[in-house]
Computed example of a mutant assay.
Amino acid sequence: MTDTTARALALLNLLQTHRHWPGAELATRLGVTERTVRRDVDRLRELGYRVESTPGAAGGYRLEAGSAVPPLLLNDDEAVTMAIGLRVAATQQLVGGPDVTLTALAKLEQVLPSALRQRVNALAASVQAPRIGDAPVVSPEVLGEIALATRDTERLRLRYVDGEGQESVRRVEPHALAPAGRKWFLLCWDLDRDDWRTFRVDRIVSVEHTRVLFSRHEITEQEIEERVLVAASWSPQNVTAAAVMELPLAEVQERFGPWWEGATPVGDDRTHWPVGGSDWREAMYGLLWIPEGVEYTVALSEPHRSELREAVGRLLRALDAAAPDELE
Rank of each mutant, 00 (worst) to 15 (best):
H217W: 04
E251W: 07
S126T: 04
V142Q: 14
T271C: 07
V41Y: 00
T153G: 00
G165C: 02
V51Y: 04
R182T: 05
S53E: 03
L108D: 09
G48R: 15
E167L: 05
Q110R: 14
D320I: 14
T101H: 06
L44G: 04
V95C: 10
R157C: 11
V80R: 14
R193P: 10
G257F: 01
L14V: 02
T54I: 03
R182C: 05
G267R: 10
P303E: 11
F199G: 03
N121D: 15
E292I: 15
T101C: 06
W189I: 07
A321K: 05
S215Q: 15
A106M: 03
H20T: 00
G277R: 02
G165L: 01
L15A: 01
A6T: 13
T91W: 05
A83Q: 08
R216I: 01
A242V: 07
A58M: 08
E225G: 05
V127E: 02
V32S: 09
M245R: 12
C188L: 12
P113I: 05
E154G: 02
P324E: 00
A79W: 09
V111C: 02
T297W: 13
T101D: 04
H18K: 15
S215T: 15
V120Y: 02
Y296C: 12
V275F: 15
P70A: 01
R309P: 06
D279R: 12
D76G: 02
E326Y: 07
Q253R: 11
V95R: 12
V32Y: 08
A321I: 08
V312E: 06
R255D: 07
D190S: 09
T28S: 06
R39H: 07
E302H: 13
G60M: 07
D76T: 03
G286M: 13
G257M: 09
L156P: 06
A241T: 10
T2G: 14
L26Q: 00
L108Q: 08
A124Q: 05
R317A: 11
E52K: 02
E141W: 10
E52N: 07
A250T: 12
P265C: 03
P136K: 00
E302L: 08
E167A: 08
S206Q: 13
L44K: 03
P303H: 12
L247A: 01
A263G: 06
A242R: 14
W259C: 01
T91V: 02
E221Q: 15
P258M: 04
P274C: 13
V69S: 13
E226Q: 06
A149L: 13
L229G: 01
W259I: 00
V127T: 04
Q237T: 09
A27L: 02
L229F: 07
A106R: 05
T220A: 05
E223K: 11
W189Q: 01
